[in-house]
Computed example of a mutant assay.
Amino acid sequence: MNNWFKILAVAVLLMLGMGLGHAADANAQLGDAQMWAELKDGAVGYTTSTSEFHGQPINTYDPRLLEARGTWLAPGLMAALFGMIVVFALFIMVNGISRLHHGFSGKMVYRWSKLDVSIHWLGAIPCLLLILTGLVLLAGRFFFQPWLGEGVWAGLVYAAKQVHDVMAIPFMIGWALMTLMWAKNQLPKMYDIKWFMVVGGYINFGPFKNQHPDAGFANAGEKMWFWTFALFGLVISASGMLLLFPNLFEPSRTLSLTALILHGISAIIICAFSIVHIFMATVMSEGGMECMVSGYCDENWATQHHNLWFDEIKANGTLKYKD
């Protein structure tokens, strides 16, 4: 009898304990819900930081901004890089490259100074590294991480972040110098319309074949790339500074997230135009790459692609050949 009494007592105590436990859990959940509700409503606490935002544990923002990173920006940057490479590769397979109709003359015409060439590569090399590392940071976890081990992925992300941060400053310096020094040769002209109408003379079939539209120092396509680079380079530099030095600017979380979105959009646009620019300079235009290697271009290249500029330097006596 005593044993049954003991068992019954233990059972009653267990039931009471479970009831108290459920009550405690319910109170804890109610307290948590109340706490999170207050935080989401903008409740503030105390901190030794002097930033106006640091007293607020949670900063509410439109969740669509964060979702846009994985939904739109990551695939957008992938498409801008690899998509444009595929498009240009197919185009060259079908169309071929733009060859010099009279071949190389052997006479090299002065076009860019050594300073200009240096500034170009000061902006170009960091730009390429920023695109590749930005691809890892923005889109890597969606497209690369599933195929890599955790250790490899962690090392790749760390290296990408370090390179991205270091290359940001020389890119911004190169962008600023190119924008300020080259803008005078990039102003639109009426003959630029004809250049676009015949696609710059780079099409090797149909009514576009053997068309050589007028162009000054820069053709219409180069001008479009320049002003795109100038505008979105400004956006990517400003947003990049905000993200790179948060302790200096002390942005709110909403502003930081907005800067990240603008940074990604600008990166997609610059990436797509960069691929076009690289293909045009290295593959599509025979003799074009030499301009940014030595600063000189072949005379036949100048007359075929930049005839108005070549006529101008002949007329004003500034034509200079390489010794």
Results as ranks from 00 to 15, higher is better:
F5H: 10
I7E: 09
I7S: 08
L8N: 07
A9I: 09
V12E: 15
V12S: 14
L14K: 14
M15E: 13
M15V: 15
L16M: 15
G19Y: 08
H22R: 14
A24E: 10
A26N: 13
N27L: 08
N27P: 03
E38V: 11
L39H: 04
D41K: 13
A43G: 10
T48Y: 10
S49W: 09
E52L: 11
F53M: 07
H54C: 09
G55C: 02
G55D: 07
Q56G: 06
I58M: 11
D62S: 06
E67R: 15
E67I: 06
A68V: 01
G70D: 04
G70K: 14
W72A: 03
P75D: 09
P75R: 09
G76L: 02
L81E: 03
F82P: 11
I85F: 15
L90Q: 09
L90R: 11
F91S: 12
I92M: 12
N95T: 12
S98V: 08
H101K: 12
G103V: 00
G103N: 06
F104D: 05
M108E: 15
W112H: 15
V117E: 02
L122H: 00
L129D: 09
L132R: 11
T133E: 04
V136F: 04
L138K: 04
L138E: 11
F142S: 13
F143S: 07
P146I: 02
G149N: 06
A154T: 14
G155V: 05
L156P: 07
Q162C: 08
H164V: 05
M167G: 06
A168K: 06
I169R: 01
I169W: 08
M172T: 10
G174L: 02
A176R: 04
L177F: 03
L177W: 03
Q186K: 10
L187N: 05
W195H: 13
F196D: 08
F196S: 06
M197W: 10
G200C: 09
P207Y: 05
F208C: 10
Q211T: 13
D214K: 15
D214A: 15
G216I: 00
N219M: 02
A220T: 02
G221F: 05
W225D: 08
W225F: 10
T228V: 05
F229A: 01
L231V: 14
L234A: 14
I236M: 03
S237C: 14
A238E: 05
S239F: 08
G240M: 03
G240F: 04
M241K: 04
L242I: 15
L242P: 08
L242M: 15
L244H: 07
P246H: 08
P246S: 11
L248G: 03
E250V: 12
S252M: 07
T254L: 15
T254I: 14
T254F: 14
T258Q: 11
L260C: 07
L260K: 10
L262H: 11
G264W: 00
G264K: 00
G264A: 11
I265W: 07
S266M: 02
S266G: 05
S266H: 03
I275W: 04
I275V: 13
I275T: 00
I278S: 13
T282A: 12
E286Q: 13
V293E: 02
S294W: 04
Y296M: 06
W301R: 05
A302P: 02
T303N: 14
Q304Y: 02
H305M: 02
H306N: 00
L308K: 06
F310M: 14
F310G: 04
E312Y: 01
I313T: 00
G317T: 09
K320H: 15
K320D: 13
K322G: 09
